[in-house]
Design a protein around this nucleic acid. Structure first.
Length: 554
RNA sequence: GCGCCUGUAGCUCAGAUGGAUAGAGCAACGGACUUCUAAUCCGUAGGUCGCAGGUUCGAAUCCUGCCAGGCGUGCCA
């Protein structure tokens, strides 16, 4: 519809130019926007101001001229105004927006489904926290962001796969195994000093006890290396189990858990190194094998095999991303914690070196969560065992509130998360404000059923009954929803959804407080049934994307 | 030092493609339940958009410099 209006304007401008009454011979890009305030109409364009920039006429004068050339064959425009410095504001016919209500009411939580994705395949890899400790609150933010982005892209027609990359080998695993082993020894009253670089958290001792209960003293006598390997593997399995439990409760689901170890059993890493070697992007220096990432814009070359013959995580990561490309996605999105941003140039360098299309690869950085407790900063480190776990926050704040809270923020905005404050805000969290809309509307239909008020087939409803400005406003917000989703998806900014749904909720609550849906006026009641059903559909759809429950009662 | 991100109301943060009088929630204050749920509504108050220049009809938004905070800058991940 926005398109139809655009065409009307383009025709008006072009005709004006042909007659020499509108300056310029070509057409600047047409910008149609939703004005901030209702008094500026339903749509506005600044085309006159753009045209005026190269002419010696006032924008308002040009705007007036363009308006004279506007022809509205379909009869959708109520009136047109020139306002401010030269905006052309369009006011559409009173019931224009109401036509969208049937679609929203009919589709319910499927409302907003679109096809700008065109069935293109997108891989979103996110979270990928090392299985060396439980998920903490910072992980929660990334999990929520990745999941909601995936939901959003699915909604607008992409085929999305969610993937979690598990670093289950390497130095961190060694360290984990060693930490558990030492705690295991302590369980048998061995005297020893726990190293400061080991994992200090209580959960390490917990795992050690589990192993003691399961395996007894088997590993007291076995060679240290065997014991450490066993315990590292065992511990990472246990911890990965915790992570999966937490994520399930957090309503985050993955299609695939990609294990780093598989890159080696499948031979992908050696094959990758062979390929890079053949392309002469590798060289040896001081006993290590280096990748010439500086050829592709990185600030220094990077090691892929260390002096001790161990491959680096970077080598695995290159092989992993090559595999992603081989799987034939149209878009590859990585979501990383912002502390990894220095990693981007080398990853992009590797992708170029492999001859892959860099344009389809995108890293989204999510800023870290700065954890506070009662206004005081809490340092957070998996290694020292000082952190607030996601589980704890889910217990205290609730899953819905927690997810919603994270989605209020832009990904690249650092976030202060005060646990005490979040707990207090639990009851007053805006998420309930939005959920309440859904519950209230459910309750209206429940009431109707109780009182034997029949809910009509919506295609028969007379929408011209909706005459109030609030009703028009509600219908408009519902109507714009699919377009909103598209904008968010193209910008990869799912956080905008909370702003939208809060705005809609505000308008609804105000309306609900002032007017009753069920009344003696049968035709009006029916029209309002349609209206609130449509609002409920949009809210249900939005909450679905946010991964939050849409309750029928609260 | 260099690189990336951030700086908007007392607090936490929104401000799509540069537009009209910069918004919301919380906190504060005053009102509204005989009604389809008061987890709601109505009203009041709150600002040097970090600072200084520049680009143009127009800048919170783009450019440059500076200030402040965070992160990164390993043969760690």
């Amino acid at each position: 519809m926005k398109k139809g209006l655009s065409e009307i304007i383009v025709r008006a401008v072009t005709r004006g130019q042909e007659r020499g009454e509108v300056p310029g011979s070509d057409l600047p890009p047409l910008i149609m926007e939703y004005p901030r305030e209702e008094k500026y109409g339903d749509y506005a364009t600044n085309i006159a101001m753009t045209l005026a920039s190269h002419a010696e006429r006032s924008p308002r004068d040009i705007a007036e001229t363009i308006v004279r050339y506007i022809e509205d064959d379909e009869g959708i425009i109520e009136r047109v105004e020139v306002a401010g410095p030269g905006f052309i504001n369009f006011f559409l016919k009173a019931d224009y927006w109401h036509h969208f209500l049937r679609e929203a009411a009919r589709q319910g939580n499927r409302y907003g489904e679109g096809d700008i994705g065109g069935g293109k395949r997108v891989l979103i890899e996110f979270l990928s926290a090392n299985p060396t400790g439980p998920l903490h609150i910072g992980h929660g933010r990334i999990a929520a962001f990745g999941d909601v982005l995936a939901n959003l892209l699915e909604k607008v027609g992409y085929r999305v796969e969610r993937e979690y990359y598990v670093n289950d080998i390497g130095t961190q695993m060694q360290l984990l195994g060693r930490s558990v082993y030492l705690r295991y020894l302590q369980e048998w009253d061995k005297e020893l000093e726990f190293p400061s670089d080991g994992y200090q958290g209580d959960y390490i001792s917990e795992i050690a006890r589990t192993i003691k209960n399961g395996e007894g003293d088997t590993y007291l006598g076995s060679p240290e290396e065997d014991a450490i390997n066993f315990m590292g593997e065992k511990a990472s399995q246990i911890i990965l189990g915790w992570i999966k439990d937490d994520l399930e409760r957090f309503q985050v689901r993955f299609d695939k858990w990609y294990h780093e170890a598989d890159l080696y059993t499948s031979g992908l890493v050696p094959r990758l190194l062979e390929e890079l070697r053949n392309k002469e992007y590798l060289y040896e220096n001081e006993g290590a094998l280096w990748f010439k990432s500086t050829l592709f814009g990185d600030e220094k070359d990077r090691v892929v095999i260390r002096g001790n013959k161990a491959t680096t995580y970077f080598a695995s990561d290159i092989a992993y991303h090559k595999d992603k490309y081989n799987r034939g996605y149209d878009h590859i999105i990585d979501i990383w914690g912002a502390d990894h941003h220095g990693y981007i140039p080398r990853m992009e360098a590797a992708i170029q070196a492999l001859g892959c299309d860099q344009a389809i690869f995108k890293v989204i950085l999510v800023q870290l969560v700065n954890l506070l407790r009662g206004g005081k900063q809490v340092s957070m480190s998996t290694r020292t065992g000082e952190f607030t776990s996601l589980k704890e926050v889910m217990d205290e704040v609730g899953v819905d509130a927690c997810r919603y809270f994270f989605m209020l923020r832009r990904a690249d905005s650092p976030l202060d998360f005060d646990v005490e404050l979040a707990k207090r805000e639990g009851a007053e969290n805006p998420v309930y404000y939005v959920q309440y809309v859904h519950a209230r509307i459910s309750s209206i239909f429940k009431k109707a059923a109780e009182d034997g008020v029949e809910v009509p087939t919506f295609k028969d409803v007379d929408i011209s009954q909706l005459r109030l400005p609030e009703e028009r406003l509600l219908a408009k917000r519902v109507a714009i929803y699919p377009e909103f989703l598209e904008g968010m998806a193209l910008a990869l900014e799912p956080h905008r959804l909370t702003a939208y749904v809060q705005d809609l909720a505000g308008i609804f609550h105000s309306y609900y407080n002032k007017h009753r849906v069920i009344s003696d006026d049968k035709a009006l009641t029916n029209a309002r049934f349609l209206l609130v059903k449509a609002v409920q559909g949009a809210v249900h759809s939005a909450l679905g994307i946010l991964g939050i429950v849409a309750p029928t009662e609260m």
